[in-house]
Amino acid sequence: MSQAAVAHHEQEVSWNGGVSPMNVSYGKLMMWFFLLSDAFTFSGLLITYGLVRSANPAYDPASGPFTFSTEYWPIPEKVFEAVPFFHGVPLPLVFVGLMTFILIMSSVTMVLAVEAGHRMDRKAVEKWMLWTIVGGFAFLSCQAWEWTHFIVGTDVPTIQNTFGNKVEIFGANLTHNQYGPPAFADFFFFITGFHGFHVFSGVMLNFLVYFRTVQGLYDRRGSYEMIEKVGLYWHFVDLVWVFVFTFFYLV
């Protein structure tokens, strides 16, 4: 069996030249370097958020209880405290905590699918890939709700004083934002939107490999390495969310 496993590994990792730099297959290595470049893109977005945030005044607790104002950066947990079916009940970070849990769980089911793939166990791969797809859709649905709430806004508007005109602001778009400076909403849309788009393409890729597993393509190919490559991408999406969660919602 061990000899068969070694032969199997050789077949998986060997490039066309017959050797395998870094002892991984070409596809897997390229996925790693793509993810490295993608990590730079997300770092760029999150670091720019840090730059603009530190260039804006912060809320001063000495000035009284926290209210939304376009004058200073909001406390994130005051912005993200809405939960579906609990209208008017402040539950800070509960919903985003649920989203984090969903994404981490779908990462676990993905890694179980990869493990099943190593054993050529088609039925188990199908089962875990389906759970991963369900997790991805659940996360996207949560994000759709959160965006809707963010855009529509709370019951009480924020009053903005523009050259003596008092303007009521409900919710947020790219130019007006009831929660804080417009840049806060812009970063929310760009960072969580770019991440959500990654989740969406991840779900599409997950579905593709699930479909091809059902078709028996990987059995015929003699390797489930494709599950591993797509798995790397899916874990990366989870990894980015861990950083977005900290730097956008917690800090």
């Binding site: 068969a4 676990v108 493990e115 054993r119 050529m120 166990d121 028996g216 059995d219 015929r220």
Partner: peptide, 22 residues
């Protein structure tokens, strides 16, 4: 024409380790 597939049993140790990480 389908190739002969040998399905190996689940690696209990490995799966337990993954759940521990979770």
């Amino acid at each position: 024409e389908e190739p002969q597939i040998t399905v190996l049993p689940p690696d209990k140790e490995k799966i337990k380790k993954l759940w521990r990480v979770a």
